Amino acid sequence: MSFSLVTYMQEKNVGHLKICLTDIELATENFSEKYIIGDDEFGFYTFYKARLNHFDDEKSSSVEGKNNDERSKRENNVVIKRVNTRNDIGEERFLTEIERLVNVKHPNIVTLLGFCVESYEMILVIDDVSNGFLGLYLGDNCSDVRRTLTWEKRLKICIDVANALDYIHSNMKDKKPMMHRDINANSIGLDENWGAKIVDFGFSAFERPYHLNDALPQRIVSRKKWYRAPVRANTSI
């Protein structure tokens, strides 16, 4: 575990979100392929669907002053996000995502239910997106599953994503505005009611950066330029 992550957990009091690696391995049968529901295009992480005990976020107001054993927990369907490469970039993204998700609470943004940092593993546990990710339903090779995505559902997804972005850009009350900086079809999860939830805040940043291209690895910027707003692609705004 990196020093920065240890320091953050101590300062921010998020120890109650820690989940043992053995519990995650048991829930996924040692990360069996049959539990995989998606991954990112660069191979940074893999998503698994499982059922797991985790901190009960709905009763979060009652955790103050209690130790980890006394805090409310419940078993639920969850998504396990496993970082595939443990290096400086992977650790930085992992820490950034924890920092961002503990600062946001919105129905169209995934909730951080837990995390695990043991041995060489770095894992986030987020709420369930039982219908997978939007990228699974788009593209030339997705004609069969694409029929599931009716125009009514597509409109709902667009509105949900817009609401989430509006929230992090300008409606986080006493918190600084945030930019996600990696919105794409694979960072939009779909819950059981086809509601959209934004995931993957590893490249996000508070406030508006003036030189976004310098903040992201160049290969990611160049391969995802079609997701950027035209005003961002053509200017330094």
Rank of each mutant, 00 (worst) to 15 (best):
M1K: 12
M1C: 13
S2R: 13
S2I: 07
F3D: 13
S4F: 03
V6P: 00
Y8I: 05
Y8K: 12
M9S: 13
E11D: 14
K12M: 14
K12F: 07
N13D: 15
G15N: 14
K18V: 07
K18G: 01
I19W: 01
I19D: 03
D23H: 02
L26W: 03
A27K: 02
Y35M: 07
G38I: 11
D39Y: 09
G43Y: 05
G43K: 04
G43P: 07
Y45C: 13
K49Y: 11
A50T: 06
N53W: 05
H54N: 09
H54V: 15
F55Q: 05
E58W: 04
E58A: 08
S60Y: 04
S61V: 03
S62M: 13
S62R: 14
K66F: 12
E70S: 07
R71Y: 02
R71S: 02
S72Y: 11
S72G: 02
E75Q: 04
N77M: 04
V78K: 00
V79G: 02
K81A: 03
V83K: 00
N84D: 10
N84T: 01
T85A: 00
T85D: 07
N87R: 01
R93H: 10
T96G: 06
T96F: 00
E97K: 08
I98R: 06
R100C: 13
L101H: 06
L101V: 13
V104E: 03
V104F: 08
I109H: 08
T111E: 14
L112P: 08
L113D: 05
G114H: 06
F115G: 01
S119K: 10
E121M: 11
M122H: 05
I126H: 06
D128C: 12
V129K: 05
L134C: 12
G135Q: 11
G135M: 06
L136N: 15
D140C: 02
C142G: 00
L149N: 07
L149W: 04
T150E: 08
W151Q: 05
W151K: 06
K153A: 09
R154M: 03
R154G: 06
K156R: 15
C158G: 11
C158E: 05
V161L: 04
A162H: 09
N163K: 15
A164I: 06
D166E: 11
H169T: 13
H169E: 03
H169S: 09
N171M: 09
K173E: 14
H180I: 12
I188V: 15
G189C: 12
G189I: 14
L190M: 11
D191H: 09
D191Q: 08
D191P: 09
E192W: 00
W194M: 13
W194P: 12
G195R: 05
I198Q: 01
V199I: 15
V199F: 03
V199P: 04
D200R: 04
G202I: 01
A205H: 13
R208H: 12
R208Y: 12
Y210C: 07
H211G: 01
N213A: 09
N213V: 10
N213Q: 14
N213L: 09
N213K: 09
A215F: 06
A215G: 00
L216K: 04
Q218P: 00
R219G: 01
V221P: 01
S222C: 09
S222Q: 15
R223E: 15
Y227F: 15
R228Y: 14
A229T: 02
A229K: 00
P230K: 01
V231G: 00
N234A: 12
S236N: 14
